[in-house]
């Protein structure tokens, strides 16, 4: 009798096993048939970004993986740069009290009268987006916030994306990992 019972149990086990196997196969096939990319990464759409400053604070890394990138092609090389200088400064000098950037991450270099080149020191940039806001409001919008993929640990659910008020974060294919505006003739 015991033998018979064991056989029945084995039979049920085998049946369920095959069932689970088929189930896993169906789910796998279904997912594979929809797959478009072999890898995705997180990126900010500058068109949606409102520079709220949460990128600087919400990232799981101590210093955010979001940095300001400078698209030089779009830059006007202005002397009175609204991304570099604070709006109500009395003097237009490079003094720290006149700079918009809280960490002085923007380096200003004289090129030709009256033009200046602006360069982001990424080690200092905390991704707060203050300069991006200034440049976007009164300038060309050549400063843009982007996820720096060398730093980003590519969390399954980006902590900044969860906090982002404008839903500017999305998963993009790793083959085109940046969403810069005005880059490459766009």
């Amino acid at each position: 009798m015991d033998n018979k019972k064991l056989n029945r149990r084995e039979f049920i086990n085998k049946g369920v096993r095959i069932g689970i196997g088929v189930g896993i196969g169906v789910i796998g096939y279904e997912l594979l048939s929809r797959t478009l990319s072999s890898k995705t990464v997180w990126q900010i759409d500058p068109a949606k970004c409102i520079q709220c400053g949460k990128c600087a604070t919400s990232c799981v890394l101590e210093q955010s993986a979001v940095k300001c990138l400078h698209v030089y092609q779009m830059c006007g090389y202005c002397d009175l740069c609204s991304g570099y200088l604070r709006p109500e400064t009395k003097e237009l000098t490079t003094g720290a009290e006149n700079q918009l950037c809280p960490t002085s991450a923007i380096e200003r270099k004289y090129i030709d009268d009256p033009y200046f080149e602006y360069h982001i020191n990424e080690e200092l940039c905390i991704g707060c987006g203050k300069c991006v806001k200034g440049c976007g409001a009164f300038g060309n919008g050549s400063l843009q916030l982007q996820v720096q993929h060398e730093l980003c640990v590519n969390c399954n659910q980006c902590a900044i994306a969860r906090e982002c008020p404008s839903e500017a974060f999305s998963r993009v294919p790793a083959s085109s990992p940046y969403l810069l505006k005005g880059f490459g003739g766009k």
Binding site: V41, I111, H149, E150, C152, N154, A174, P177
Partner: peptide, 12 residues
């Protein structure tokens, strides 16, 4: 003047 390139680091 030579315009610098915007450096875009590739993901892993």
């Amino acid at each position: 003047y030579q315009q610098p390139e915007t450096i875009l680091n590739a993901p892993r």
